[in-house]
Design a protein around this nucleic acid. Structure first.
Lengths: 216, 216, 216, 216
DNA sequence: AGGTAAACGAGACGGTACGTCGCGTCTTTCA
DNA sequence: TGAAAGACGCGACGTACCGTCTCGTTTACCT
């Protein structure tokens, strides 16, 4: 039989040592590297399977052995950006959360970041891959953010609030600027936005300071 | 010379009566109608120029006379969705703003709405058409929202705040759920999100009342 | 009614003075001139109606007012090559015939001549226009040749022979070399061919004399 | 690299076993068969690549892998008519030559024969393909005829003559009637033409007999 | 001298076919 | 037996011309 499991480029061919020549991990890496390079040049919708194959010095069928279709390869290539988020050692949970938002903004403000955003929006929202993609890029961060928020509530920095709603406010604002591009996604915006979103449930005196700082 | 101005389907060939046979507005309409119909069926990336031409009873070159490529036609078709604006006759500016957010959520929750969102994110962010597209769909609403916010501040319903930041919080949260799909974009969410975003700058006691009133 | 007589570019719009603006003979000439120029550049199959119209500074419909389709215009343009027939003032009818063959060879050896030959062969053999074309170019010459042959028989230069057959031999040989291009269509060939074709029915001793005389 | 050798449908992809999937000879045959069928229906200028592809159950690009453009495919299809030349077992070389001319006339008098003639004349006379085409169809026969003529001279049936000139007379006459269509290309014409062309260099008594037979 | 009807240039129209590109599959040979 | 090479069927792309159809303008004739 010819059919073979597609690993979607995520799982590392476990399943207990097959017979015959093993799949070339080198080929897989070359493919991803080529795809990443091309993405940087031309954007996701202009990356072609044939282009990747040529650039990676690989046959097209080898690509299709690992991924089910063009979309999947491109997504995999985008997922492969370095794992970032080097464990911000901040003071308070709230400060850590704010720093995280800054980091995200920086990360996605690059051309590649734009491509990721584009793929996020363009893909069939119901596909398994698309979900994995969203999960990998956004929801994982959002989960981090949730931890910070919970910690802040625990520590008394914040009053009671719906964590999901708060996260969507914060992350939404960031990605909205990213997608629309109507105004710069700079650190000032993040601070202001952060402040406004949470000022109603803030405890302590940092509130006033920040509110002043925000004034233009 | 052969080259001719593409009007990007927006401008109506003004510039003072050209020579030769005028372009057929009927053909243009038929094209857009056909494109819109196909969009509803299959999604933006599966709409083909040949399909549109056939369905509209139009030659392919006529399509390319009006728009420069496939992308442009599809965008134009999506822009053509009825201008809605149901003239929310709300009480206070803040209520009106909240109702607007509900309306947007409803609108974009449809398949066509998803398509619009996909195109918004997928298109080359620097292209003229893409900007027009974003402007037409999102920024126009955002501008409406800005008016409500200003009115609310004027009327004393809200304290001082940075309007741009507030808008990106509100709209960002809506589109974030739309894109990520990690949680439902229901009216409860919108109320809660609205509440949290503005609770820090709210005046009076309307807070509790609104939250209850919105329950269905 | 809109329909109008196509004159096939031959008849000069007689039929008793129509009303309205008369057709512009200048436009007609410009069209033919443009077509002829383009023929010389690129060959019959690459001459386009749009090209002619542009080059002649004329609208396409004006072309179609005079001729029914592309083919007809091109043919008309080819027909328009000057009527030549330099009135060979030869001695004997046979010499005149031979000189005629030389003249034809010279005429058709040009690029335009090749184009004429191509059209001769390529056109639908049953169309009216195609017949007129063949008639104009080849059969008219052949008729001239027939006269020479008849005169030669009358004068006793030639014995009895089937004139049609003899003409097809002579003209066929010329056009065969023209089309096939396997060997040069030079004057030596024509002399030799002429000699061989008729040597069986020749009277007198003119045979040797002619062969020598023709040497260059 | 993407570019690939076009074999012009003549050479059989030899050159020492290429890598990758070999070109499908079956597809090539199907293409030619489809093209030949369509030629019989509609004539060379109405045969379309898309039509061939559909009829042959083949993708358009496959056609362009074998031939460079429409023209080349049609020519190849015409070349593919069965190799004929049923080895005329005649008596004398001269009789064999005459029979050959009859055979040619018969062959080219069919619609397909007309198409061949049309292509012969219409194609760019300098292209490689065009030369091959002429060679295949006409010059190969002419070479056969040359052999007959040489044999006839050797055997004393004919006196000395320029073989090239004689061949162009004979073949020219046949193709002239074919192209011009001013008179039927029947067997009587061929006999008469044959007689007249060679009567001057004929030996023996067959001359008179034939000459009488020719009279109408 | 003015009307008026046809021809004019320009160029958009519905079509058809072109030749190309990319998809995802298949069939070879090579390592 | 996996991988490179690359041909395959498919189908859409964007372009070139075809021959027809408006447009607004020009030009000669005919009151």
């Amino acid at each position: 039989m010819r059919t073979r499991v597609k690993t979607t480029g995520l799982a590392p061919l476990t399943e207990g040592r097959r017979r015959g020549r093993p799949r070339s991990a080198a080929a897989r890496e070359a493919i991803l590297r080529a795809a990443r390079d091309m993405l940087a040049d031309v954007g996701p919708s202009s990356v072609t399977v044939e282009g990747i194959a040529t650039r990676a010095g690989v046959g097209k069928p080898t690509i299709y052995r690992w991924w089910s279709d063009r979309h999947a390869v491109v997504m995999a290539a985008l997922m492969d950006v370095e794992a970032d988020a080097p464990a911000r050692a901040g003071r308070s949970p709230l400060t850590q959360l704010r720093q995280q938002l800054h980091a995200i903004a920086e990360r996605f403000a690059t051309p590649t970041g734009r491509h990721v955003t584009a793929m996020l929006a363009a893909a069939d929202p119901n596909s398994e891959l698309s979900k994995a993609f969203r999960n990998h890029f956004v929801m994982a961060r959002r989960a981090e953010g949730a931890a910070f928020l919970r910690a802040a509530i625990q520590s008394g920095e914040l009053g009671r609030l719906d964590i999901d709603v708060a996260l969507d406010l914060l992350f939404g604002a960031v990605f909205f600027r990213l997608l629309m591009g109507h105004a710069p996604l700079d650190s000032k915006f993040i601070d202001n936005m952060f402040e406004l979103a949470l000022c109603g449930v803030r405890r302590g005196t940092s509130q006033q300071r920040n509110t002043k700082a925000r004034r233009r």
